[in-house]
C-alpha cells in the first residue's frame, strides 16, 4: 500500500494548523488544569501527524506517553501548587 502524496498534503496542513492552535492555546490559558488538558490534545494531534508520516512506533509511544502519562503528571502538579497562573 502506498500513499498518494497529492491527497495527503491538505490533511497534513489541517493537522499542522490545529497543532499550532493547540500549542498557543495551552500557553495562553490562565488556569493550569485547562492548559494541561489542552496540552494533552496537542500531544494527541502530534501523534496523528506522526502516524501520517509513517512513524507508527513513534506515534504509539506519543499516544501512551504524551497524551496519557504526562497529562496526569501535569494534573498532579497543578493540584499541588496555585492553580491560577499570572500569564
Amino acid at each position: 500500500m502506498t500513499w498518494d502524496a497529492s491527497l495527503l498534503w491538505q490533511f497534513d496542513f489541517l493537522i499542522l494548523l490545529m497543532v499550532i492552535i493547540c500549542a498557543v492555546a495551552a500557553l495562553t490559558f490562565k488556569d493550569l488544569i485547562t492548559s494541561a488538558v489542552v496540552f494533552g490534545a496537542y500531544s494527541f494531534l502530534m501523534c496523528l501527524l506522526w502516524t501520517e508520516m509513517l512513524a507508527v512506533d513513534v506515534a504509539f509511544t506519543e499516544a501512551a506517553v504524551g497524551a496519557g502519562v504526562s497529562t496526569v503528571f501535569f494534573l498532579g502538579t497543578a493540584l499541588h501548587i496555585k492553580r491560577r497562573a499570572k500569564d
Binding site: 507508527v56 512506533d57 504509539f60 506517553v65 496519557g68 502519562v69 496526569v72
Partner: peptide, 20 residues
C-alpha cells in the same frame, strides 16, 4: 508497532488508573 517502551508505559498507566 510496539516494544518495551510502549508496553512498559501502558503497564505503568494501568496501575496509575487503579491509583486514581
Amino acid at each position: 508497532p510496539g516494544g518495551g517502551f510502549q508496553g512498559g508505559v501502558i503497564l505503568g498507566s494501568s496501575f496509575i488508573l487503579l491509583a486514581l
